[in-house]
Design a protein around this nucleic acid. Structure first.
Lengths: 158, 158
DNA sequence: CTTATTGCAAAGTGTTTGCATCTTA
DNA sequence: TAAGATGCAAACACTTTGCAATAAG
């Protein structure tokens, strides 16, 4: 919603990123990008690896870690840590800036937007003379709505 | 500043927490608490362990991990992840609520306060019917001030 | 044909667990 | 003296690294 991109557009971005950095175009890199594109929500390296293996794609963990770095560097994905020692990722194309609500009961992650955060970022940057490139705002708590309860039931899904 | 607590007050809090949960009072638990009390800034389990070993205190990593859980549960410390796979802790007594600025060049962490965050927390909680217990707001960027440059020089210290 | 990239396995790192030994209550 | 806590080492989970084989340009 808003500024969705097709896999072709995203490939083109990745393509020109690779070219600009003198990195080679390999089938593995594009298959990781495709898989990331298919993710509807947050994912981690292991889940991505298993998913790809399950689809009989030829890939190794090392290559996924390698490619993830390139995708981060080209701003096609974002990295998060939601209070656990596992890096979570999400694609950063096709969605507007948002932050996260994390349920401490079911680990489910919800997204929200609030323009005031950007104001705080700007004024804090000025105050500290800090060149802020990005932020992470996480609210931790317990979801209570019926609609959320549903999610809460299939605990620890991701 | 504001509501500092002495080690005696903190011990009393820990003491009554342990009693209320039926946990035993052990010298190790109190020596971890003392060490945490002595920390002026963020710390992690390994740094705490090495510091204690250096002071010839008898302690094991396992016991520190164990005690850290109790200190978290009794709200005497807070846990953070600043974008790395290492849990960072800080004492949560004797200081007011604050958030963090993380320098991507030198890994140094700065603290700031902004009351607007609490407003966002309240309205987001209402909007999602989420019972929010706490939050983490991290700004990532590069520090530029001379005063900060100093910190930046002894890279990777904390 | 040169050199970046892949993929495996080994090593690294932070954390958790199992269990025998101690110690608190 | 019984249940809980400690401490060591082994196990774990995620990530990084070394290196021979492969493939992009």
């Amino acid at each position: 919603m808003g500024n969705q991109k097709t896999i072709n557009e995203v490939s083109r971005i990745f393509n020109s990123y690779l070219k600009s950095r003198g990195h080679r175009k390999t089938p593995e890199r594009y298959s990781v990008l495709q898989e990331v594109f298919n993710q509807s929500s947050h994912f981690n390296v292991e889940s991505l690896y298993l998913k790809m293996k399950n689809e009989n794609l030829s890939i190794s963990r090392a290559t996924i870690y390698n490619t993830i770095e390139l995708l981060l560097d080209s701003n096609l994905i974002k990295r998060h840590q939601f209070g656990k020692n596992i890096a979570q990722y999400e694609k950063s194309f096709e969605q507007k800036q948002h932050d996260h609500l994390i349920c401490l009961d079911c680990d489910k992650v919800f997204e929200f937007c609030d323009p005031r955060i950007h104001q705080i970022q700007t004024s804090t940057g000025k105050l500290f003379n800090f060149n802020i490139s990005h932020h992470a705002l996480n609210f931790y708590g317990r979801c209570q709505e019926l609609i959320n309860k549903e999610y809460c039931e299939n605990k620890g899904e991701g």
